[in-house]
Simulated assay, not measured.
Amino acid sequence: MHLPTDDSGHPLAVAFEDFIRSQPFPCVGAKSALSKGQMKIVVARSIASSWDDPRLYPALLAFICRYRAKPDLFQSFAVIFADETAFPEEVFERHLWNRVQSLSDKDAFLGQRYDARVEADPNDPHFSLSFGGEAFFVVGMHPGARRPARRFSHPVLVFNLRAQFEQLRAEGRYEKLRSAILSRDEALAGSINPMLARHGDASEARQYSGRAVDADWVCPFRGRETESRDAA
């Protein structure tokens, strides 16, 4: 595996930071992560290829180690893919899950435990991804996204720590933050994102790609067996 690199000065990283800082962008959590210098950005080749997966996985683990050493709020890990191909939403969604599956398979192969605070079954309403024993919610962005907040010049995967959502809830700050993001997103797009749901009400897997999916949509992710997770 390749050691993590620092891509903070890459032109795509700078462009993405400008996108987050722009006034219309609705996620105030991402803005806070960036302003605090707590958004780790890695630039990879193509979301359609596994080429950089051996570099992305240890970079994600390094991010987790830094978070555990200093668990401040508003930390994110973002992967920007340099390939400029504009995928239709369904194709981007497939590539997103292929990359997530590859990273998850590496996590399982190396014996990393699945975060016991969430479920590994993507159909379960308490589902989250898990890497290095930490649960994550993924936000996908790409040029072909219908929602303006998800529309960036290149494909991006943003990994957000589930523990931070729970910390905000414990501090009584979650609802205010969520309301602010929803209001800003509605002002930008003209409507509320129909795929939004609270953790525990519906599987968050339906929200990752940003595409509006039907009730009969089936997540392509192969979650780990419960027995394997518990034994890890």
Results as ranks from 00 to 15, higher is better:
M1I: 14
H2I: 14
D6V: 07
P11S: 09
L12A: 08
A13S: 13
A13R: 02
V14Y: 05
V14A: 13
F16N: 00
F19Q: 03
I20S: 02
R21A: 13
S22W: 11
S22C: 15
Q23Y: 10
P24C: 01
F25R: 03
F25P: 04
P26W: 04
A30R: 01
K31C: 00
A33Y: 02
A33T: 07
K36M: 10
K36E: 08
Q38I: 11
V42F: 01
A44M: 02
R45V: 07
A48C: 08
D52Y: 01
D52E: 07
Y57C: 09
Y57F: 15
P58K: 06
A59W: 02
L61D: 10
A62E: 14
I64L: 11
Y67P: 03
Y67Q: 08
R68S: 10
R68L: 13
R68T: 05
R68Y: 01
L73S: 08
L73M: 09
S76P: 00
S76L: 02
F77M: 02
V79T: 03
D83R: 03
T85D: 10
T85G: 06
A86M: 10
E89G: 08
E90N: 13
E93M: 12
E93D: 08
R94S: 10
R94T: 12
H95V: 11
L96N: 04
N98K: 12
R99M: 13
Q101N: 07
F109N: 06
Y114E: 04
A116V: 10
A116Y: 08
E119F: 00
A120E: 09
A120M: 13
D121K: 00
P122N: 03
S128V: 00
F136Q: 07
F136N: 05
V139P: 01
P143Y: 04
R146D: 14
A149G: 14
R150D: 04
R151S: 06
F152N: 08
S153R: 12
S153M: 14
H154G: 00
H154M: 00
H154W: 02
V158W: 05
L161Y: 06
R162L: 10
R162I: 08
Q164P: 02
Q164N: 06
R169N: 01
R169Q: 08
A170Y: 04
E171Q: 12
E175F: 02
L177M: 14
R178E: 11
L182C: 12
S183D: 09
R184K: 10
L188D: 06
A189P: 09
G190K: 02
I192R: 14
I192E: 14
A197W: 02
A197G: 06
A197C: 09
H199V: 08
G200H: 07
D201C: 03
A202N: 07
E204G: 05
Y208T: 09
G210Y: 01
R211V: 13
R211C: 07
R211Q: 15
A212T: 15
C219S: 10
F221G: 04
F221V: 04
T226I: 15
D230A: 15
A231P: 11
A231G: 14
